[in-house]
Each structure stands twice: as C-alpha cells, then as structure tokens.
C-alpha cells in the first residue's frame, strides 16, 4: 500500500489506537504519530521556552519518552496528548530553572512561525505581533504562561489543562485570568507599534 494512502487511513485513528499499533510493531503508526504529535509538542515547548532550538530538543525528548512508554500504555488511563503536554511542561520547567530566566530577548529568539502568506508588509506586522506576544509570555510567571498557552493557543479545555498541570479547574481559571490581565498590561503600551491604532 502506498505510504500516503496508509497515512491517510491512519489519520482517522485516535492517538491511543495509533500508540497500540506502534507498540504492536507497525512502523506506519510511528510515522503517523510523529506527524501528528511533534508539531503540538514543539509549538507548546517553543511558547514556554521562547527558544526554537531548545524547543526542538524538548519535543524530541518528550517523543522519545512516549515511544518508550508505548508498550506499557493502558488505554483509558490518560489521553496521549495530555500525557505529552505534561512531559513537555516538566521538561521545560527543568530547563527554565537551570538557565535562570534570561532577560527578555524573545524578539531574537522567538520561534520561527509558518508563513501565513498575506503579503510582505502584513507578514512583517504579524511577525512583529507574534514576537511581541512571545516577549509578553516570557515575562509571565511559569505557571501562568503554561495555563495561558494551553488554553488560548493550544486550545485545551480547562479540565484538560487541570490534568496536564495536576491542579484543580478553579486554579486553572485563576491562572489564565491573571495571565491574560498581565499580558494585556504588558502589550497595552505597544498597541501603536504593533499596528492596532491604524485598524480602528
């Protein structure tokens, strides 16, 4: 069977079903899981760390742990993505502790984003806005940053975030609310610079 067709069929499987197939020795499942999960692990790590190279290392390490956990994986105990986000969170926390938060240099270190393609000027504005968002995220306390990124960029629900962060749903709501207020305050002074005044 051609590889593309095989991947298309596997794309309909749940993460847990793919992990089962991987553990049973199906190499196509390894490819499908890689394509599905690496972008999520990488994107989340990049937002937490503000450093593309470190985010790649974290994503690779988290996936390696998933491969090793696959043979003993019990479906129904935890969602694969929840588990993966938790591992990425822990790996990023370790890295942030060890490097002792650098001063905000996110404009230079911001991860490379996919090109939206709406034209060069608009693209530059978007890139500036993303860099500003990353710089503001970097300024948040770790837990607030994790909660805000999981909720508003990764699109997880509050109960899912609670499972990832091992806290209650109310604590998640509190963290995201405080995080958003802090982000708004940080970005408020840059509205004009980021091109928002012109749109009113």
């Amino acid at each position: 069977m051609p590889r593309d067709m095989q991947l298309e069929q596997l794309a309909q499987h749940t993460d847990a079903a793919l992990l089962d197939r991987y553990a049973a020795g199906d190499p196509a499942a390894a490819r499908a899981l890689t394509l599905r999960l690496v972008p999520r692990a990488l994107g989340y790590a990049a937002r937490l760390l503000g450093d593309a190279a470190e985010a790649e290392d974290v994503a690779q390490e988290a996936m390696l742990r998933l491969w090793r956990a696959a043979p003993g994986w019990r479906s129904g105990e935890a969602q694969v993505t929840t588990w993966l986000y938790r591992v990425v969170t822990n790996l990023c926390t370790d890295r942030l502790r060890s490097r002792k938060r650098r001063p905000v240099t996110a404009l230079e270190a911001a991860p490379e984003m996919a090109d939206g393609g709406p034209g060069a000027v608009a693209g530059m504005i978007e890139a500036d806005r993303m860099a500003a968002l990353q710089a503001a995220l970097d300024a948040l306390p770790d837990r607030q940053r994790q909660a805000v990124v999981l909720r508003h960029i990764e699109g997880l629900t509050n109960p899912e975030i609670a499972a990832v962060m091992d806290i209650g749903v109310e604590a998640v709501e509190s963290l995201t609310a405080r995080g958003k207020r802090a982000l708004s305050a940080i970005l408020a002074g840059r509205r004009e610079e980021l091109g928002y005044e012109d749109e009113d």
């Binding site: 394509l35 690496v38 994107g43 996936m63 696959a70 984003m113 939206g116 508003h152 960029i153």
Partner: peptide, 26 residues
C-alpha cells in the same frame, strides 16, 4: 494569529523523532 501560525517542525526534527521511534519500537 498565534493559533493560525503554528510552529512548523523542521524535516530534520521529524526525521530524528521518527528514527528514535523506529529504534525504540518493539
């Protein structure tokens, strides 16, 4: 905007992860 501009993994990273996966595969 951030949701619509996901961080795109490089081909090299995908290759490394897949190689790890195939190495570790039972």
């Amino acid at each position: 905007t951030a949701r619509h501009m996901p961080v795109r993994p490089s081909a090299a990273l995908l290759d490394r992860v897949l190689a790890d996966g195939l190495d570790a595969q039972p």
